[in-house]
Design a protein around this nucleic acid. Structure first.
Lengths: 256, 256
DNA sequence: CACGTAGAAGAGATCAGACCACTTACCCGA
DNA sequence: TCGGGTAAGTGGTCTGATCTCTTCTACGTG
């Protein structure tokens, strides 16, 4: 009773729930299903795939989590826009539950992406986009609670990356700088000196964008990410061992 | 009407299935659950959360898809290693089902990451790591079918990125250069000139690594990604409109 | 005729319980 | 002592019923 069914070798010993997942992904890749399309009802799909409705629902749940499908209660199952932002939404869990060294790694990646992205933004930004970024900066200057400050910082960087016009880049960057992540880095860093330093960083980035100077933008972004990295390292050290001596704030500087 | 995303107080009007998802993620973030820990049985969990087993299973399915949990048939549900590679496995769907412009965007991101990563690798590589990369190159030179060539190319770049010691970076890069993606770029580019060009690119990267020369490594990696991007643009143009004139092979070069 | 509301139909959400398939560990016999 | 077999435990799947939400229709009112 095992492999006797006529299924081709590939789909033979596949968990039942996985079959609809692979098939639907395949249909999308082949163009049989397009963004926005509505799928048959769960009851019809389960019959079509020869699986129970429970299993079919788990398959749909998988594809929903991946950002491929979207379920509207009472209305049906739809293919999402399949835009990078849809497919990379899962990305944020990394920043959400990672700890210690992985957070450093995340910042190192941002140190590769954000300078390049900011430089690109400086070259491509329209007047309207620059105006919007400036507005965000003004809102940050107005102060507000820590929550608002974190949100505004996030919005500032997101706006810059969006200016590059690369939605994939924007989605990845969003994932690497999720709200949870930033809140963690920021916690305990609201002292006067650091807040001022942050504002300076942002101002320098903004000025470089205004001047449409990619090199300056790259440098400013690099400095900013490095600063955030320094804070994080400081925090991690404090957590690890409570050494009161403030030395070794930036251990192991990048060799390159 | 109701504020759909109010989220005030406790989990007020949250879909039943989502409650276990959020709670388990929270427990992991708080350290109540650690990598490798085993969770209670599905039956116990469903009782603990006050949901049916079906709903709990959908929650577990969500977390499994995200790479947070791992289910072993007959043995139990476990927390994964929570390593970047675990959490970013979903990443590959982007390369799997994206088309057209998004593929270009993916390559632009790689153009930001791979040069930086290769430079870092040049600075940090151990003799053993360099030897391994060299071995991969030799295997590629031996030829073989297109399938083997794609796999070897992938392995080559993965080995380099792993050399940086940044698992997050490696996971992201893996996602951006999945087998499916590469197979698509490569299809139809096995002509003599391009194969040779590819081998040259790889050799130059390898030489830069051997010389532990970050600048040369960065340049070589950049050239390589740009070359792949040129192929892809060529393919996309061919698909879109069948213009026989070979002009506009590399449209809109990056302004920066 | 225009419009809004109530009801019905359809679709996903959740639940309950049963049975199947796989893993693990224990126990018994050689 | 070692090996295999068996049973308990756990995830995998199925069935079918009920609940909730969306959507559309049809009715009634102004």
């Amino acid at each position: 009773m095992t492999t006797s069914d006529g299924l081709r070798g590939a789909a033979a010993r596949m968990p039942v729930t996985r079959r609809p997942v692979e098939r639907i992904k395949e249909m999308i890749a082949e163009g049989e299903l397009s963004p926005g399309d509505r799928l048959p009802t769960e009851r019809e799909l389960s019959a079509a795939f020869g699986v129970s409705r429970s299993s079919l629902r788990e398959a749909v749940r998988t594809l929903t989590t991946l950002g491929v499908l979207e379920v509207r209660h009472g209305a049906g199952v739809y293919v999402t826009g399949l835009r990078p932002g849809d497919l990379l939404e899962t990305f944020s869990v990394l920043a959400e539950i990672s700890q210690g060294d992985t957070l450093i790694e995340v910042l190192q990646v941002r140190r590769m992406l954000e300078p390049a992205a900011t430089a690109l933004a400086a070259a491509r930004a329209t007047d309207e986009q620059l105006r919007r970024i400036g507005a965000i900066l003004e809102r940050m200057a107005e102060g507000g609670g820590e929550r608002e400050a974190v949100a505004a910082d996030l919005t500032f960087h997101q706006a810059i990356v969006q200016t590059t016009g690369n939605a994939t880049l924007a989605a990845i960057n969003d994932g690497l700088s999720s709200r949870t992540f930033n809140a963690r880095v920021w916690s305990g860093h609201r002292e006067a000196g650091q807040t001022a330093r942050l504002r300076d960083d942002h101002q320098r980035i903004y000025q470089a964008l205004l001047a449409r100077d990619p090199d300056a933008a790259r440098a400013a972004a690099t400095m900013h990410v490095m600063e955030v990295e320094r804070w994080l390292r400081c925090d991690l050290d404090r957590e690890k061992g409570d050494r009161p001596d403030g030395t070794e704030q930036a251990p192991r500087p990048e060799p390159a």
